[in-house]
Design a protein around this nucleic acid. Structure first.
Lengths: 141, 141
DNA sequence: AAACATTGCTTGCGCATGCATATGGTGGTG
DNA sequence: CACCACCATATGCATGCGCAAGCAATGTTT
């Protein structure tokens, strides 16, 4: 149930603005669904492929890209992680050979993160699980 | 150059069931919204009331309850936290006097977590911020 | 060109979380 | 009563995260 703009703008605003209950309900429902999907993904990606959710998300972004490379910065934003968290995540992925760090020629502060062949294979395998989990638990009520 | 969902779910894709592309898109959108709401809540509840998201969620459940008390177990499930995480969360809230642990008479393994007067006041204040943030960022975009 | 501000990434640190396990309480079965 | 499987919470430990600070490269101002 979505809240219409009219609901939100109702003037009968006291301690609890009109439409508030709906928003809270929507938020709780989103939290529940988010938690359900995360825990299912965490478990299945972890057990079957040794990947965490964030790991997969990064591989997924890289696999989507034509050149299979992203600027670290853009990657962080895309997967909703802080710069520092992404830096360490790339560390872990690089240590297991799934991605490589690559200096950026025109701006030597930046780095490109690029998918290795191993990474591409891992992603292809994990993507099947990922899609299956989403199809199973995301629409579930 | 971004790859559209349609690109990912080419009909020639036997391994991926139909509708898969849509689910991935929906999941990414949910992640984005969830992250946006969490970061806004984290910031505003933290700055204005010294509360984290989980802290508020617990207070909110307690305030909702007629008796202002919940079994620790049920609380954990309701706020989507592990039993251990909730135990420590209650520690922190109890240490700042917002809740109290209360032995359960008929089953002395269990505990009730109950809202103190301070906790109720804190919740009332924070709830305003919480609702406002939700109304602002949840329906956005 | 020298000094300063800004950007992009890394690192030190503290913290919240989950998993596995310990501790203590309960109920059922012999 | 003794035992045992089970349940509800607490705690040790490892991990991933964000914030703040650091560092090197780049851009800007004079």
């Amino acid at each position: 149930m979505s809240v219409t703009p009219a609901d939100r703008a109702t003037p009968a605003d006291r301690a609890t603005p009109a439409g508030t209950a709906d928003v809270v309900g929507a938020w709780r429902e989103m939290q529940a669904r988010h938690a359900a999907v995360c825990s299912a993904l965490e478990r299945e990606l972890g057990d079957r492929h040794g990947l965490g959710i964030s790991d997969f998300e990064v591989l997924d972004r890289l696999a989507d890209s034509p050149a299979r490379e992203w600027r670290a910065q853009d990657l962080a934003e895309s997967v909703h992680l802080s710069q520092s968290a992404l830096s360490r995540l790339v560390d872990r992925l690089a240590r297991t050979g799934l991605v490589e760090r690559c200096a950026c020629d025109n701006d030597r502060r930046g780095i490109f993160v690029l998918l290795t062949e191993d990474g591409a294979r891992k992603h292809a395998a994990a993507a099947t699980t990922h899609r299956a989990v989403l199809a199973r638990v995301l629409p579930a009520r």
